[in-house]
Write a protein that binds this DNA or RNA. Structure first.
Lengths: 115, 115
DNA sequence: GGACTACATCGACGGGTGTCAATGTAGCGC
DNA sequence: GCGCTACATTGACACCCGTCGATGTAGTCC
C-alpha cells in the first residue's frame, strides 16, 4: 500500500469542496430532474408567470394524470416546486431559489479561466 | 375541450423555452449526477488541479473498483468527464464546460428579480 | 516470454423508478 | 343530500440502476 518506488498516481487528493450533506442534496435535486417529463414540467412552470394547475400539464406531457401527479410529487418532495390549493384545483409553481441554488453549486457564477 | 363557461384553470401555457432535445439533454446530465457517489467524483475532480486516476477515487468513495469504473463510465457517457490513458493508468478530468452549460440552462446567470 | 498492476467488462442480485388502470378523496354546484 | 370535477393514492407491471465478485484486457517491468 506504501511502496518506496516512485508511483505516477495515487497522489493525495485535494479536500472536496462539498460536504456529505451537500453531496446528498445535489444528488437528490438532480435525481428529481433525471426524467425528461419532470424537466419539461420545470420548463413549463418556468415559462408561465402564474402558477399552473395539473390539468394544464397533462396534455403537453402526453402522459396520464396519475403520472403527472407522481412527477409533481417528486418535484415537490425535492423542493423544486410549490403547491397551492385553490378550491378544486391544485396550482404548482416553480421554486426558483432552489433551482438557482443547484445551478450555483454546480458551477459558481464567477468565470475564472484556468487555461 | 372548449367550454363556454369561464374556467379557473387550463389557460394556454406559454411556450416552453427548451426544445425536446434540450429537455432530453438536461435529463441525461441530471441523471448522471443523480447518484451521491458520482456527485462526489465530480467534486473530487473539481477540487484537483490535475487529472485523477481511478485508484485515487476508490478509497475516498468507499466502494469497489468496478463500481468506481461504472460510475466513471456513466459520467464519461454523459460528457461530464474526460478520460486520458497514460500507460497503465487512466486519468479522469472534469469537463467544466459541460457542467457550466448545465448550470446556465438551469438558472441563467442574469438575476432579474420579478417579485 | 512471464508475472504483475491498473482498469474495464460481465453476470447476478436487490432495490428503485416510470407508467398505467382502478380507486379514493376533497371541493363545487345543483 | 347527489352528482360532477380535479387531483391524489394504490397496486401492478416492466424496466433500469447501484453494487459486488469474478473475469477479461492492456500496459509495465523483470
Amino acid at each position: 500500500m506504501a511502496p518506496e518506488r516512485e508511483v505516477a498516481c495515487c497522489t493525495p487528493l485535494a479536500a472536496p469542496a462539498w460536504s456529505d450533506a451537500d453531496t446528498a442534496d445535489i444528488a437528490r435535486l438532480c435525481r428529481a430532474l433525471a426524467d425528461p417529463n419532470r424537466v419539461r414540467i420545470v420548463n413549463l412552470l418556468a415559462a408561465s408567470p402564474q402558477p399552473v394547475c395539473v390539468c394544464d400539464l397533462t396534455e403537453p406531457l402526453g402522459v396520464s394524470q396519475p403520472t403527472v401527479s407522481h412527477h409533481l410529487r417528486t418535484l415537490l418532495d425535492a423542493g423544486l416546486v410549490q403547491r397551492e390549493r385553490r378550491g378544486t384545483w391544485a396550482y404548482y409553481s416553480l421554486d426558483n431559489e432552489t433551482l438557482r441554488r443547484l445551478a450555483d453549486v454546480l458551477a459558481p457564477p464567477q468565470p475564472l479561466e484556468v487555461t
